[in-house]
Design a binder for these strands. Structure first.
Lengths: 193, 193
DNA sequence: CTGCCCATGTAAATGGTTACATGATTGA
DNA sequence: TCAATCATGTAACCATTTACATGGGCAG
């Protein structure tokens, strides 16, 4: 349900097209919600159908026409309602941890490779979030209060990524320090009976 | 795709029924993957249909019969294949951060209430993860290596939750320290034209 | 003339949540 | 007699991903 609210939320900042929104999701909202363009276009249609946003076609020469969307009063109400009520912890879906949990089927090098690959992705993303070029959108905030809140969402992203990177390093070290058990990956003991 | 692999993975540890698996997801795999019983039953059916697991009916007196599942050789192969290849960072979907991002529509008390509620949920979950009663399943590991890996997945959960709790406190403090702007929540400026 | 940016969508499939549905046994 | 535990599932819906599909303008 919150994709709708994220879109509605950003439309209160500025009327935008689906194409624009996709860029906002890729650059600014990326660290707490992601969406594909097909999802965005369908959600915008639904908002208009439900009377929570209006659509305005903007004719352009030299480039394709676009449709700008804006929340209606009903849209603002719905958004305010959703924003004020508490929502649970994000549900986790963490493929790397599934891999680690069942890594008895892998040999030591494969386990280390998975962790190192994951660490590299984390480091790359932390680098991007720390890059001032990535902070531009924060200066579009309408008040110091909003600027603080936007910066906080980024801070959350950086803090959790760094905690994970730290965990990756700790885990690689601990794994290497395990008493050498000449580990042989488990095999299916097929047809034991 | 990884629900299938999480199930397959746990079935290599021990043949289990759908009902048992649900409990495993609730207690042991909970910090990196969640699933409802309806999802589990459907996935088990699919595994059998696809020849990746076998089903065995166990007749019980005094309680309902149950169906135990075990991976086939094809299941082991599929699992090994999936475990060895890298999967991207988990895609984030973080409702609280959406709320914070658009909190210009809320007043100060509402923002603090959201953060405090979130912090309380985090603290409660950290407490559960730290509780030794919650660690029982780790001792079922088949090797010291596996024990280390299972403990690491829990460690990941605790570390990221604590990073977030820390962030919550920092954010509440920073928010309260904002220069008092007599904040009035934004209103839709309807019918300006 | 190639490839990127602009700008829009649809279709099909997969994945996930919620609600509906049943029924025996055991312990308080 | 009430609630919990054991044990299974289906149906409807909602959310997400991936692939298909189009087409003009502009810069190198």
């Amino acid at each position: 349900m919150s994709l709708k609210h994220a879109i509605l939320g950003y439309l209160t900042v500025q009327p935008l097209s689906g194409y624009d929104l996709k860029k906002v999701f890729d650059h600014a909202l990326g660290y707490f919600w992601s969406a594909t363009h097909s999802q965005i276009y369908r959600t915008l249609d639904r908002l208009v159908r439900d009377g929570e946003a209006t659509q305005e076609v903007v004719i352009q020469r030299d480039r394709p026409n676009k449709k700008l969307y804006q929340p209606t009063e009903a849209g603002w109400d719905e958004l305010r309602r959703w924003l004020a009520e508490p929502h649970g912890l994000p549900t986790l879906r963490h493929p790397l941890l599934v891999q680690l949990a069942f890594a008895e089927l892998l040999d030591d090098d494969q386990v280390v490779a998975l962790l190192e690959d994951y660490g590299a992705r984390l480091a790359e993303r932390i680098g991007r979030y720390r890059d001032p070029a990535h902070h531009q959108h924060i200066y579009l905030a309408r008040t110091p209060r909003e600027r603080f809140l936007w910066w906080s969402t980024l801070d959350n992203g950086i803090a959790t990524l760094e905690a994970e990177l730290c965990w990756v390093e700790r885990t690689i070290d601990g794994f290497r320090a395990l008493p050498e058990g000449h580990h042989h990956p488990l095999e299916a003991d097929h047809d034991r009976d």
